[in-house]
Design a protein around this nucleic acid. Structure first.
Lengths: 380, 380
DNA sequence: TCGTTTTACTGAATCGTTTCAGTAATGTAC
DNA sequence: GTACATTACTGAAACGATTCAGTAAAACGA
């Protein structure tokens, strides 16, 4: 193509003013043709469209329009990690699905911001996002992007994140749900538990810790879940500091597998493992055969999330169910309502429920007492 | 709260000009403080930030900035249906994942436009989208939103959509892949085939048709796949018009189930079914027991997509593998390259491959000839 | 000390719309 | 024929930034 001249791209797009000029009318009239047909004779309106077509004018520029109208027509979504992780995690996908229902109802777009991946975090993206509000999903307490988003002074909904001031908040009772999961194992007779956790700090060390200091976790739901596990364990009269916690940098099957190998490689290995997500639990299921363990006889596993696949693993996964889609829907609706100055639905904690499936059983050689039934932890 | 006064929300946010006024400097200086630190004494810069903090000014307004800079910092994604469907379909989710990798690399946001659901389609959303370009994914040929997006004169990548002019295009060889799927069944000895298809027209009738007029489908990949099925069937000397095609409005398990019940409820029922997606095929698997059919003995099923779950069904699903994530990644990269005036990767057809699993076998009482091996259909 | 460069800032134009307050022309009422 | 309403359009001021061409002052070299 010879000289590099940006191959034809440079012809500037026509503007409303130019369309007006062609017809010898005022820009206001052209604007009205697009936005307020009743302010115009139908004839002139047609002429405007025709002239526009002639100039290749595709209608008012969205950016200029947004500036003038002061609305962007989209809501921003902030996620704690790389977006591609979100798409690989059925829990996040379910949540996004819920949001999308709400935004679609309102005719709004859904802007997924470039993830706040560790290291490469780029607060500019939040400052540059052309949105009318934010859904902040599952971010570390001290993530600077949260501050950046709040600083924009737009309507915001916080999800799975500790409340900030009077910002609407949607989540679950992580602590109660985690406690229920631990209680389930304990009541089956397990005494040696292990935990596979999300990252504990913003710069996760990875590797082993114990359950004695849940408060140091910088990630709201992790902290609450650790606390829940710890509470149940203490209540049963067991030692909290004896419970190994393996910290995973991400919620993937692979990380779960590695964690399981470490946790189960110790002498006096746990007979049951509590996982903070189903993805991690799947990793444990995958690791078990290689370690010569069969489930649930040699090892019990509890997940968290109840993603659809949890029903189909072998054995099916006992896990804490939480309503991901509804969580997204509620968060989305609250945000949308704020934008339209409607009365928003009440922000709240959604119910969870322990779903007992085949991955948990009394430890080998233990006679179970009465088995507890599904327990629902909800608060309105 | 007594009088409804928009509870404190109305305090207008401060502007750059106001920050400048407070300090008695020019707006240009404040702008420079944010955008060109080197144009400013560090001392003054600090003062600017301090004044900004005092006024609750969170930095330059993204919309105004976009207007002036002429870039939005986001790419738009157009999908043929309601977004919530996309999130429920692992194939689409994989595609989105790929896009997100590309946009994230470039620090761009990913704006999912409110779906072009049947009926409620709202071309305004496309015209109003604040984006630097579009990925158009899987839209009907004559969808007005495609025209609207093209009309914006922004860089565009078309995915799974018939090419338009010299717009970059990414897809697979749908026809070849479909033909391979049909050939597989035929070589197993099946003679009575059925097809479960996506919508054939923009206003899908639902229900039965036959394979004799693939060209009327208004949806590129559907058309190509029907053509592929037909080609293979003709090549085998079978009658194309004898092949029942059930049209589903959406790609869901439920629709697949219904379709299977209709297709298999006829006398002289098909011994094998070709599905245009794994989701539809899952529906067939689910319907089979109720119809007293066991797979693959009584019925063979082939899917399309090879979503992860296809490996875990019972029996595992024979299906056409296509690289969803890579498709998204490639589309995203091409778009991003165009935005930055880089040389974009070459647009192309990605390879597919028939994956034979347990859901296909020779029809009952038929002795199979040599079984064909996985066949790859790729073009660069 | 003079001329030149560098530093630190400013003024004003511009990005492309929307919208509000008019205004001239036409229509209606009596 | 006058008063009033309606219709069809216009002018100009926002909306909130960025940027380019300057300019005055300070620093520098010889």
């Amino acid at each position: 193509m010879g000289v590099k001249d940006r191959a034809g791209k440079s012809e500037r797009r026509a503007t409303l003013k130019e369309v007006a000029a062609v017809l010898g009318v005022s820009p206001a009239t052209v604007s009205n043709a697009y936005n307020r047909p009743d302010q115009l004779s139908p004839l002139l309106r047609e002429k405007v469209f025709e002239a526009a077509r002639g100039l290749g004018y595709a209608g008012p520029d969205p950016v200029a329009r947004s500036l003038r109208r002061r609305r962007a027509g989209a809501v921003g979504v902030l996620y704690s990690d790389r977006l591609s992780y979100a798409f690989a995690d059925p829990a996040a996908v379910g949540f996004f699905e819920g949001i999308s229902v709400a935004t679609e109802e309102a005719g709004l777009g859904m802007l997924l911001l470039p993830g706040s991946a560790r290291g490469a975090r780029d607060p500019e993206a939040v400052g540059n996002a052309v949105v009318d509000g934010f859904v902040i999903y599952c971010m570390a307490d001290n993530d600077p992007l949260v501050g950046a988003a709040l600083g924009r002074r737009l309507p915001v909904v916080l999800v799975d994140h500790p409340g900030v001031g009077d910002v609407p908040y949607v989540g679950i009772d992580d602590e109660g749900a985690a406690a229920a999961a631990a209680e389930h194992l304990i009541s089956l007779g397990h005494r040696r538990l292990g935990v596979i956790s999300f990252e504990l700090t913003r710069e996760p060390a990875g590797g082993l810790a114990d359950l004695s200091r849940p408060e140091r976790a910088t990630f709201g739901p992790s902290r609450a879940r650790l606390r829940g596990y710890a509470t149940a364990i203490k209540r049963a009269g067991l030692s909290v500091s004896g419970v190994p916690v393996f910290e995973c940098a991400g919620s993937t099957t692979e990380e779960g597998r590695v964690a399981a190998e470490v946790l189960l490689g110790t002498q006096n290995r746990p007979t049951a493992i509590l996982c903070m997500s189903d993805q991690l639990a799947f990793g444990v299921l995958r690791a078990a055969p290689g370690l010569g363990l069969s489930l649930p006889g040699d090892l019990s596993v509890v997940g968290f999330d109840d993603v659809p696949e949890a029903q189909r693993t072998d054995p099916p996964l006992t896990t804490v169910h939480q309503p991901h889609v509804e969580k997204g829907l509620l968060a989305g609706r609250i945000l949308v309502a704020q934008l339209g100055d409607h009365e928003p639905p009440e922000a709240r904690l959604l119910p969870t429920r322990l779903v007992e499936r085949g991955s948990t059983a009394p430890p080998d050689g233990y006679k179970s007492m009465s088995r507890p039934t599904a327990r629902s932890t909800a608060r309105s």
